[in-house]
Amino acid sequence: MTTVATDTPMTDPRKAGRYVYAAGVFLLCAWVIVPLYFLLINTLSSPEAVNAFPKSFVPEFDLGSLTFFAGFAGMLTALKNSILVAVLTMILSIAVGAPAGYALSRFDFRGKEVFRMLILLTRAFPLPLLALPLAVMFIRTGLDDTIFGLALVHTTLAMPFAVLITFSLFSGIPLELEEAAWTLGCTRLTAFTKVVLPLILPGITASAIFAFVISWNEVFAAAVLTIENRTLTAFLLTNLDTSPLHLKFAGGFILVVPALIFIFAVRKYLFAMWGIANR
């Protein structure tokens, strides 16, 4: 007895600490996953089961809710609209934001700090609010209730991120590589396409996906700016009080799936992006 008692105190608290640590990690993982699992159960159950009580804690793998969702008037169009807006946002924000990111990383120019401040400022603004006056402006220009009009607003949302992320990506490519290309017969443009672009492509893809997710998830501006051409989020939001539970859950599930895939695809870049954007 005594030998055991004197031997263990050295290791025991540490072991206990490790168990607490592992349990903590496990609990926090469960905290994220369990609600998602509940949504999965509801989605993969028949509409009757979704509205029944008490709930089963395993899905019955019935596609009833999803087929109901697919058959619900306007739902598939909304899904298509969501995808279109997000893809447009992705292309626009990279096409418009990346050149600015490149300029910030490669040039010292007058007004650079002001420009950076403006970008940071937009990030610190409740941007969806600006959808209100844009609605008026869009009506005047004929952009109201169009995919393109909404994509423009979502691009404004995604732009600060696109600029800052591409800024950090470009900063990670040594200028020396570009200079070497210039001395080897490249113009600024060919050096960019032959050297910088191939190196930066994975990062660009990650930030494009980020823009996609921002647009995909955006609710307020989408609800304000679209009437006929609702996106999925706008459609679900405006029908919240009238739609049955199983429709809400199936819709929620469809909203979540791309998020799961995209976060997985960009996981390597998530932290690097913020690491540099913070400086």
């Binding site: 200079e179 001395t183 080897l184 017969g185 113009t187 050297v195």
Partner: peptide, 20 residues
């Protein structure tokens, strides 16, 4: 002239070997 039109070649301090 641009670097490419000067008939020069350059070796850089950090080599600048293209990683891709």
């Amino acid at each position: 002239l641009a670097p490419k039109d000067r008939g020069i070649a350059m070796v850089f301090q950090n080599y600048a070997v293209f990683p891709h």
